[in-house]
Write a protein that binds this DNA or RNA. Structure first.
Length: 720
DNA sequence: ATCGCCACCGTTTTT
DNA sequence: CGGTGGCGAT
């Protein structure tokens, strides 16, 4: 039981107002680090405490992990597991409801959720079958097309309008793209596939078009809470409105300055409109920051002060601290990485744990150089927003089989499996899948398909696999074993060079599957919330530095935060042009900087490698340039007394001094199999293979097998 | 006509 | 790393 006095000790005045409001719409406008999560947690606890049934609460958060975490905390507060509260993302809740009520809209509950890669696969298939590329060279890439299709759904605008406004440079292809969209839609319907956008669109349809279901849902979930409301799109706003049409018990929490997802349709005007849509809304503002020290807050307020936005709020804090954020202008990316590594080592000596520090950046590849440096210094790190376990090729092969068990008309998976067969290529695979999709019994149709010379055997094995699976009891773990049994030889042939490494992933998959007793649930979960590739990520106590894109760092905080790559052209992203996109990039920087509790380091390289391996000088990000110089401290390129200079490995300044003493380039003939070499980054290694004309494979003692090009790598022979 | 292999290029952000 | 395009082999 929460008692009222502990409540008022923990929460401030405005939070208390939000928490204890039992009925009616509430809008909480909250700054970064102001205790949004805490407010929601207490609200859940308070509701249950006052006799509201947990089943009637629906908590929508940005990630599924956030929902779990909140419910766990609320459970601790009131001595109840809160496990009967429904919590998750819009997408996962949509999935649950559509499985239950989807028949009212006329679709089978066996649909498969597809991710971005699947969507790109479909677009590719259609692109070639519609012959859209016949006479065109510059037809937009499938990634761009998927973005456009999704954007048009999320922004609730016809595709052709979107093309002429947001993608004007592609307008000459408008007709083809619209045609592609139509085919894409019917392809999904025909094959029982549903993408992320469909989940939301169909949830809204369910509420808008089927009164009985709307009634049932509104009756059941009498309390609705939405976190990160600034990241919802118009569809999601509609869903909230429709789902609460009976009771209006909605509490949304958001910060307009942290809206960073407009590229996928999020519209922070949802926050401004909320009071109009729900008349009688109580508005609560949280302006006290519980996270960062004043100097950090001064800087972040300064960042957002330059926004053209109208809704200004200035955060204040009571947390002591005098250390100003530091700005470091590095000579190049290597020097920037050295700076970060040096500071990290220093901080560790002062007693800061590695997992209390994070490095944030705009785009995934901005951290490549740093990853290399961290590796050679033996600093463990964990990259967020990188490749997920289920995104690697071998994982998808296994998942394709499991997906077909649930939805035999999933053409994408058939296609994928057929391609694993030797001597069977894209053309044949397409021919076969077309027949399978049209038949009522795909497996039987596959067995009956007249085989070709080289690949009949492979098809037979596939048919056998499915016969075995269908005979077996549908216990996920057992099914998985059968699949792995079939997959082993395929896998060893396909990934001959590095299959031992990938095998570990498969074992991990096996353990994950074992914890499920329903195959459908497993498939849904992997599509909606892919497990991380790192085993370490599962252990809270893992001692690893976090590297993350800013987008993936949303809602998190660390004691020490580095933001790297703050150069013109990197941040804001080169293709963001002034206007709303520019503003979003600024908010992105704001989000990044507000992740820091105690210390904040900003850095940028003054030299970057451009398109064709030429170095260009770049200046600092315009967002930094417009800040008041008093809000940060500049560090000179060579800080005095920094003993991290001593730990610095062989400086690549050899390149600067190299002009007069240029060493003779070694030719391939100078190396032989098995000879020992030295490399400035990777250290010593043994030559394993010589490739024509100027590259060779070297097995490094500390970094494994690498292929190097003599034109770029500076290798030296090691004597003895 | 189709498949497999090699070399090269470019990389926003994501539920 | 993943997608693509050219080329030789089947």
């Amino acid at each position: 039981m929460i008692n009222e006095s502990s409540l008022s000790r923990e929460l401030n005045e405005p939070q208390l107002a939000a928490v204890t409001t039992i009925d009616g719409p509430v809008l909480v406008i909250a700054g970064a680090g102001s205790g949004k999560t805490r407010t929601l947690v207490y609200r859940v606890a308070h509701l249950i405490n006052s006799g509201v049934a947990p089943e009637s609460i629906l908590l929508l958060t940005f990630t599924r992990k956030a929902a779990q975490e909140m419910l766990w905390r609320a459970g601790r507060l009131i001595n109840d597991s809160c496990s009967r509260v429904t919590g998750g993302t819009f997408h996962s809740v949509a999935n649950m409801l559509l499985r239950r009520y989807g028949s009212a809209l006329g679709f089978a509950p066996s649909f498969t959720i597809i991710d971005r890669a699947d969507a790109e696969g479909i677009v590719n298939l259609l692109k070639s079958s519609l012959q859209l590329t016949a006479n065109r060279k510059q037809f937009p890439s499938k990634r761009v097309i998927v973005n456009m299709l999704s954007g048009s759904v999320n922004k609730a605008r016809p595709l052709s309008d979107l093309i002429y406004e947001d993608y004007a440079h592609l307008s000459e292809y408008a007709e083809e793209i619209v045609r592609l969209q139509q085919h894409y839609q019917s392809f999904k319907v025909d094959h029982g596939l549903m993408d992320y956008d469909d989940l939301l669109v169909n949830w809204r349809r369910l509420l808008a078009e089927v009164p009985a279901v709307r009634e049932e849902i509104a009756e059941r979930y009498r309390y609705l809470m939405v976190d990160e409301y600034q990241d919802t799109n118009p569809i999601q706003a509609d869903i909230v409105r429709l789902a609460a049409y009976r009771h209006d018990n909605v509490m949304v929490v958001g910060d307009d300055s942290q809206s960073i997802y407009s590229f996928r349709g999020a519209d922070f005007y949802n926050i401004m409109r909320f009071p109009e849509i729900f008349p009688g809304t109580r508005i609560v503002k949280l302006e006290q920051n519980y996270r960062s020290t004043q100097p950090i807050l001064t800087l972040t307020n300064d960042i957002i002060r330059n926004a053209v936005e109208k809704y200004t709020k200035t955060l204040y804090t009571r947390i002591e601290g005098t250390r100003r954020p530091q700005l470091y202008a590095a000579r190049d990316e290597k020097a920037e990485a050295d700076f970060v590594v040096g500071r990290i080592n220093e901080l560790r000596r002062e007693g800061v744990a590695l997992h209390d520090m994070a490095v944030l950046f705009r785009s995934g590849f901005h951290s490549f150089k740093l990853e290399l440096e961290l590796g050679s210094h033996g600093i463990a790190f964990e990259k967020r927003g990188g490749l997920k376990l289920t995104e690697s090729a071998h994982m998808k092969d296994v998942l394709a089989v499991l997906r077909l068990l649930v939805n035999p008309f999933d053409t994408l998976s058939w296609n994928r499996l057929l391609l694993t067969i030797d001597k069977l290529g894209p053309k044949t695979a397409q021919k076969i899948t077309a027949i399978l999709a049209a038949s009522s019994e795909p497996v039987a149709a596959l067995a009956a398909y007249p085989g070709g010379k080289g690949w009949q055997e492979g098809v037979n094995r596939l048919v056998q696999l499915f016969t075995r699976l269908l005979e077996h009891e549908p216990v996920p773990a057992a099914l998985c074993d059968i699949v792995l049994d079939w997959y082993q030889p395929v896998f060893e042939r396909l990934y001959a060079d590095d299959y031992p490494k990938r095998q570990k992933d498969l074992e991990q998959l096996r353990t994950i599957i074992a914890s499920y007793d329903d195959l459908q649930r497993f498939i849904d979960d992997t599509a909606l919330d892919p497990p991380e590739a790192d085993l370490q990520a599962y252990h809270e106590d893992s001692e690893a530095l976090v590297l993350s894109t800013i987008h993936s760092a949303k809602g998190l905080e660390w004691q020490v935060v580095f933001i790297i790559g703050l150069a013109d052209g990197r941040f804001p992203h080169a293709s963001a042009f002034p206007g709303e996109q520019w503003e979003e990039e600024r908010r992105l920087l704001y989000v990044a900087a507000t992740r820091a509790r105690q210390r904040l380091y900003l850095s940028y390289p003054r030299e970057l490698m451009g398109a064709d391996r030429r170095f260009n000088r770049v200046s600092m990000s315009p967002f930094l340039a417009e800040l008041s110089p008093a809000s940060y401290e500049r560090i000179e390129p060579l800080p005095p007394g920094g003993d991290w200079l001593a730990v610095r490995p062989m400086p690549s300044t050899a390149a600067a001094a190299v002009k007069p003493v240029r060493k003779k380039k070694l030719a391939l003939e100078d190396f032989s199999l098995g000879c020992r070499v030295n490399h400035p980054f990777f250290g010593t290694g043994t030559v394993r293979k010589l490739n024509a004309p100027r590259s060779l494979d070297v097995a490094f003692d500390r970094h494994g097998l690498k292929t190097l090009h003599l034109d770029y790598a500076t290798l030296n022979l090691v004597d003895g």
